[in-house]
Design a protein around this nucleic acid. Sequence first.
DNA 1: CCAAAAGTGTTCTCGGTACACCCATGC
DNA 2: GCATGGGTGTACCGAGAACACTTTTGG
Lengths: 257, 257
Amino acid sequence: MSQLRPVVREARSVSPATTRDEGGAREHGPPSTSVTVDVVLLTLRAGRLCVLVIQRDEPPFQDYWALPGGFVDADEDLDSSARRQLAEETGVTAAGHLEQLYTYGDPGRDPRTRVVSVAYLALLPNLPQPEPGRRGQQARWWPVEDLDSPEGPTLAFDHPRIVADGVERARSKLEYTPMAAAFCEEPFTLADLRRVYEAAWGVSLDPPNFRRKVLSTPDFVVPVGAVSSPRGGGRPAQLYRRASATALYPPLLRRSV
Amino acid sequence: MSQLRPVVREARSVSPATTRDEGGAREHGPPSTSVTVDVVLLTLRAGRLCVLVIQRDEPPFQDYWALPGGFVDADEDLDSSARRQLAEETGVTAAGHLEQLYTYGDPGRDPRTRVVSVAYLALLPNLPQPEPGRRGQQARWWPVEDLDSPEGPTLAFDHPRIVADGVERARSKLEYTPMAAAFCEEPFTLADLRRVYEAAWGVSLDPPNFRRKVLSTPDFVVPVGAVSSPRGGGRPAQLYRRASATALYPPLLRRSV
DNA sequence: CCAAAAGTGTTCTCGGTACACCCATGC
DNA sequence: GCATGGGTGTACCGAGAACACTTTTGG
């Protein structure tokens, strides 16, 4: 059994940025570390869930693909930094959905120096195909299912894991939050929204049941009172926009995880 | 609409620790930052969910209560650092449950310098009352419901928010993971397990239904084949230990969020 | 004996599924 | 007209809620 005791060797400090362990057995002053933000930007393109990656144009991992990201400025908070990196590296300024994902800090995840990276997850509606960057640097969307395949991109650093974590977070949060709507340009139809779930989960959902489920969840979506013009046959669909819900109760569960 | 384009001003790097923006409009080299880990350690004491806090013995926030934590060493990963802080500051070495919670990096969250703190959530069975620390530094458990009350402790830094986030994470993950068992000393009865949910959610659950729910979830718990000795009346209960499940499907949902 | 807690059985209800069917549009 | 997709109705099924009841212990 473990004992609970304060173990106050000396005047130990207990929290951020204090000189500490004066007289303690170990020395660990405040080692300085680089803190970066990396963004897993997901969107839906042609019914497939895709992630934005940028080709690196310098070592290490030159010519590998990497997530947009960079250093956190001295005076900015983490969320702002994520928004800034996204704007600077991809031109994306749309609101969409942005949330902190996870923080990666293994020593050695960057071969040069200690870097702790706070990863963010961003969801946006489909955007134009990125132009090739000047100087050979390219940005492009990769369908997430192709990331493991041989013809998929080789990702730099520990970005394969970060992307995997981001995709899993997105898939999972679709269940109990209304964040699927962040993938849809407003106004959207319920079929648009359904296709988000179908693409993200790789399933097909029954349209009538999906409709009832979404409409019975208070403040998930609200009708805008107009209908879409069907493209190539079919009855026009009601149009909706996101509403104020922050959670779905009961959730919209995937089959059997 | 936002445009998607690489915006490669110059030889922009896109990921950790690269000299960057040579020739770009803004300068933001790699600013060095202190990275700490803070641990929200939760346990159950007398049917109440409690968090461990340590009284600070030096400025800033002298005499305020704070979460155990400290600097991440140059060569350790974040999870190891969290385990180390817990062991050094509270003597806790038990396995329990430990997961990364969230990363807090607002400039100004520490009045002295920029500190990015990676918070962890730890769950443990009830532990002995901590002795008062030498040199006046004390560690103690606070019931989480008392944290906002006037007679509750005044928490340092942004620790009130971190504790609130940790408690909410724990409450929420009880629904869809078997992590409630981390609060129970093995072997435990189903009543022990039920009391975890009741304390964390502030509800009372129907024992028969709870029993069926837990036992019908594959690999949530396994019987050890012994029974508890009832304390003061009542039929002896079967004893169980944690099994291999990592998720509960279907989840054990709280009433109406 | 009674009280207390474990454990079983049973009914009811509600949400999800499956699927038949109707509606409105493009061609 | 026919194909296509939107939208409604409905019957079935399974999990959860509520609660009566039995079992096994301490006093």
